[in-house]
Design a protein around this nucleic acid. Structure first.
Length: 568
RNA sequence: CGGGGUGUAGCGCAGCUUGGUAGCGCGCAGCGUUCGGGACGCUGAGGUCCCGGGUUCGAGUCCCGGCACCCCGACCA
């Protein structure tokens, strides 16, 4: 490929709205271009990377016996209505009607469609287990796309679906996918770790996310410093100290706190620590049911955990009328004599008294004791934080940011039950198809590779996904000898199966070297008057400071060796 | 969806306070010089100043309304 005719130019400066290092380099190196918020066009260099990422995933899916298919982008409403997701996904999907008035949406994902085909194709246990996958566009009307290709409104996902007879079979398929994911990410140059994740409120007992640790990540991952415990913060737990036996705690006593309504203000005015207080939150779930949650004053509510406890899709703060109904006063709410369903976080220590709201204006209570003065359902709905103790080994945990590059879910019979997808078992009974689904976003993977593989000069592509194997730089002189020699070199390399980007432009050496560093192809081959004099070619790895002169006659085997030895 | 910010040439920005007919750097085109780490000189092209309305003799600048994009948070199989 001649760089003089490459579609897409490199930029010396990144557009001002590109924030992360990877996004700036993605734009500067002509990997992709924005079309609208969260919509990107792949340019030739980036598209070559995306196809290589796809191919790695394809090979690893094929290796575990998954079969590639293709389901349309435009999907009819009827199947989504069977599972109730036509309504549930309304706020985050793109929809349209055909001229006959039939409703469709751009696939947000494809579980329903796979299940529709599976129930038509799979009649007998003899056809199981089976696995299918496809690469297909997903449309998601994200309210906040961000960081270039990391979160977009349209993106290609590899989604795989496993179908088997029972939980045991599903478990095997699940771990086969887990292995395929680990190999896929490793091959494309991503250091991804698998962490336990929230399964959402859609059922299923196990889910893992593959996370790449980087500052630009949206997720927070809890790590144990001593053992292998790691979990997404939306699911993480911690070891609790056993509650001390409550001694002789005097009865609750009111304390006047006029106008003091926040935890912070209370700690100042009473001269106590936030952890000495109880925080009571009055919340509403998606159905409008009101619930009060009690936490120590120094702990934050973890909404995903609470949603799971409440089996709801949404929690928000309660309205004024809810406070009245609960016989509470905003700013002075406490668990005592509250007229509401009461959830008590497990962080609340039953062995010690707290200061809590008195449910009376301008008053709090001292000596409030769990078990004596109030009772509720004990639940784990608090955020784990840095320094907490590991639930597995008691070690200290830390928090890091991560990008979720892939996820795997065990659904079990959930979709089959909703969509009446059954097979005839050995014993003649009808049983539900056991289902699992497994996703990897291609664009997000590419963006994550860029975020984690660069230096001050530009991108540093892992060989396996680099847009080209080598970048040939011709430093053209006054006559045509350098060009002729470089032309011949490129022809030979291409004939040998080497992917070459050939900088044949009439630019200065500085411009060409800077662009080569920016684009980040693994090996740079320079042809110039200087190298011709030695009948050699200079070969330099992207991260090396200096190149080496390789005799012209040895260059093909040398390059074959280089791209072979670094190829996994 | 809540909060914050930004829209002026392909990119980065100034001009707006105090209204007078748009500028700088890079990039781009032509010519010449240069030629191994973003060269130099000369000449030149390139603008619905986000959109609509208003005030005014006159609006990039002031007022009103809208739109787009970015960031933080919320949400997110």
């Amino acid at each position: 490929m001649k760089q003089s005719s490459l579609f897409g130019r490199t930029l010396r400066e990144a557009p001002a709205d590109a924030q992360t290092p990877g996004t700036q380099l993605m734009l500067r190196a002509a990997i992709a271009r924005p079309l609208a918020a969260g919509l990107y066009t792949w340019l030739p260099l980036g598209f070559r990377v995306a196809r290589k990422v796809e191919q790695i995933i394809r090979e690893e899916q094929d290796r575990i016996g998954a079969q590639e298919i293709r389901i349309p982008v435009i999907t009819p409403a009827e199947y989504w209505k069977e599972t109730g997701r036509w309504d549930a996904l309304e706020p985050v999907t793109f929809r349209t009607k055909d001229h006959g008035g039939h409703e469709y949406m751009i696939g947000y994902t494809h579980e329903e469609l796979v299940m529709k085909h599976a129930r038509d194709e799979i009649l007998s246990y003899r056809q199981l287990p089976t696995m299918v996958y496809h690469f297909q566009e997903k449309g998601r009307d994200e309210q906040r796309p961000r960081a270039g290709l990391l979160r977009t409104r349209e993106f290609v996902m590899k989604d795989a679906y496993s179908i088997d007879k029972d939980w045991e079979g599903l478990d095997k398929q699940y771990w086969a996918q887990h292995g395929a994911y680990a190999r896929s990410f490793e091959r494309m140059g991503l250091t991804a770790i698998s962490v336990e994740s929230d399964t959402g409120n859609m059922g299923g007992d196990v889910a893992h996310e593959f996370q790449v640790l980087t500052e630009v990540g949206e997720d927070r991952i809890i790590f144990c410093s001593q053992c292998d415990y790691r979990a997404n913060m939306e699911k993480a737990t911690r070891a609790l100290s056993p509650a001390a036996a409550a001694g002789n705690v005097p009865a609750p006593a009111p304390v006047s706190t006029p106008g003091v309504t926040t935890i912070e203000a209370l700690t100042k005015s009473l001269g106590i620590a936030a952890g000495d207080l109880l925080k009571t939150l009055l919340l509403r779930d998606a159905s409008g049911a009101v619930v009060a949650v009690v936490l120590p004053g120094d702990r934050e509510l973890n909404e995903p955990k609470l949603r799971k406890v409440l089996k709801t899709s949404e929690v928000k703060f309660a309205a004024d009328a809810d406070f009245t109904a609960a016989r509470a006063v905003a700013g002075f709410i406490g668990p005592n004599n509250l007229n509401a369903r009461l959830l008590v976080d497990v962080s609340v220590d039953g062995g010690r008294p707290y200061v809590a709201g008195a449910n009376t204006k301008d008053a709090h209570l001292r000596n409030v004791l769990l078990g004596r003065d109030f009772n509720g359902e004990m639940v784990d709905v608090h955020d784990v934080r840095e320094g907490d103790r590991c639930p597995k080994c008691g070690g200290t945990v830390t928090i890091k940011r991560g990008v979720e590059v892939g996820n795997i879910f065990k659904f079990g019979p959930y979709y089959a039950d909703k969509m009446n997808a059954t097979y005839e078992a050995e014993d003649g009974t009808r049983k539900p198809l056991m289902f699992g689904s497994y996703g990897i976003g291609i664009g997000r993977a590419v963006q994550t590779i860029m975020e984690t593989n660069h230096d001050a000069k530009g991108l540093v592509w892992p060989l396996a996904v680099a847009p080209f194997h080598v970048h040939v730089i011709a430093l053209l002189g006054k006559d045509d000898t350098v060009r002729a020699s470089a032309d011949a070199l490129v022809a030979e390399l291409e004939a040998a199966g080497v992917e070459v980007l050939y900088d044949d432009r009439d630019e200065s050496a500085g411009v060409k070297f800077a662009d080569a560093d920016l684009i980040g192809i693994p090996f740079r081959l320079t042809v110039s008057a200087r190298t011709l004099k030695e009948n050699a070619v200079e070969v330099k790895g992207r991260t090396e400071d200096k190149g080496v002169m390789v005799p012209r006659g040895w260059i093909i085997p040398k390059i074959r060796d280089l791209i072979g030895e670094r190829r996994r």
